[in-house]
Write a protein that binds this DNA or RNA. Structure first.
Lengths: 151, 151
DNA sequence: TTAAGTGCAAAAGCTTTGCGGGTAG
DNA sequence: CTACCCGCAAAGCTTTTGCACTTAA
C-alpha cells in the first residue's frame, strides 16, 4: 500500500463512492483514508488519529472514529479480525491473509496463491451469505519471541 | 461444547494445569470456565459476567476479566479473532473455523475436513512461529440480512 | 507466615452521541 | 434554506489497577 499512484486511484474511487451516496470527499476524509493506506499495519482509530497529529493535520478524534466506520461501511477499507480489544482497520480490500500474533495482536499481511484459490466450503444451513474467505495463521511474532527468551 | 462429561474432563484438566503453576481451581474460576463452555457463542467478558449473575453466581467483574485472561494465557480457552471492539473468548481449543458476520460481529463455528487438512503455508521471513491455521468466512448472517431487507 | 485470590472502587482506555456552528449546493 | 460535516465535550462502554481482606498451604 505504498504505491502512491495506486493511492491516487483509490482516493478518486473513494470520491466517486462518496458522491454516489450524496457525500463529499472532505479534506478530513481524504487525510484519514490516506493515513490508513500509508500506515499499512492495520491501525486502530487512535493510531490513525495520532499519525495525523504527527503530520500536523488537525482532525478530531470523533471525526476519525466516524469516518473510519463510514469508510468500512461503504467498503473503501475493511475491518481486520484480531484477538484484541479495539477495532483494527485494513486499507486492503483485495483478497489476502493474515499472520496474527496471539501475544501482542500484531497483524501482518501475507499472500499465497494456493490459499487464494481455495473454494468457499459449503456452509448452507448456517444462513450466512459468505463474501470472502480469509486464512489466519496464529502464532507468536519475532519480537514477542525475543522478549520471551529474556524471561 | 454441551457435552457435560467432556466438560468435567476439561475442568479436571484445568485443575491440573492450574496446579502445575502453583494455582488453585477456585469456585470462581470453575464457574467462569464452565460459563464459557456453556455459552458457546464466543462471549465477551461482560457476557460471561452477566450469564453468571443470571445464575445467581456472584463473581466480580474484575475477577471475570482477570480469570478469562489467565485461562487464555495458559491455553485452557482461546481468544477468537473478530472485527469488533471487545475481546471474545472461545471455549474450543481444537482446530476449527469461523463464520464471521461483518455487520454484527457474530461468530459461528464450522468444521470442514478439507480445511483441517490444509498445510500451513511457508511464511519464513516473517519471523512468526505459526501455531495454527484457521479459516474465516466473512459475510452477513441471516438476522442481519433480514433486518437489511426491512430497510 | 506467605503467597494467592477476590471484591470493590477508581482509573484508564476506547467509542459513541448530542449539539452548535460552519459550509456548500 | 437545507443537508452535510466537523469539533468539542459529555456520556457510555470495556478493561486494568491498587488496595484491603480473606484463605489455604
Amino acid at each position: 500500500m505504498r504505491d502512491p499512484a495506486n493511492n491516487d486511484e483509490r482516493i478518486e474511487a473513494l470520491r466517486q463512492a462518496l458522491h454516489a451516496r450524496g457525500l463529499v470527499l472532505t479534506p478530513q476524509r481524504r487525510a484519514i483514508f490516506r493515513a490508513v493506506l500509508d500506515i499499512g499495519e492495520h491501525p486502530t482509530a487512535d493510531r490513525v488519529h495520532a499519525a495525523l497529529r504527527r503530520r500536523r493535520i488537525r482532525v478530531s478524534r470523533a471525526t476519525v472514529f466516524r469516518t473510519l466506520e463510514a469508510l468500512a461501511g461503504m467498503g473503501a477499507i475493511t475491518k481486520a479480525c484480531h484477538p484484541g480489544s479495539s477495532v483494527r482497520y485494513d486499507g486492503r480490500t483485495d483478497r489476502h491473509h493474515h499472520l496474527v500474533c496471539t501475544r501482542c495482536d500484531r497483524i501482518v499481511d501475507f499472500s499465497d496463491a494456493k490459499l487464494d484459490a481455495l473454494p468457499v466450503p459449503d456452509t448452507a444451513g448456517f444462513g450466512f451469505r459468505v463474501n470472502e474467505l480469509r486464512v489466519q495463521l496464529r502464532g507468536i511474532c519475532e519480537q514477542c519471541r525475543e522478549q520471551e527468551e529474556k524471561a
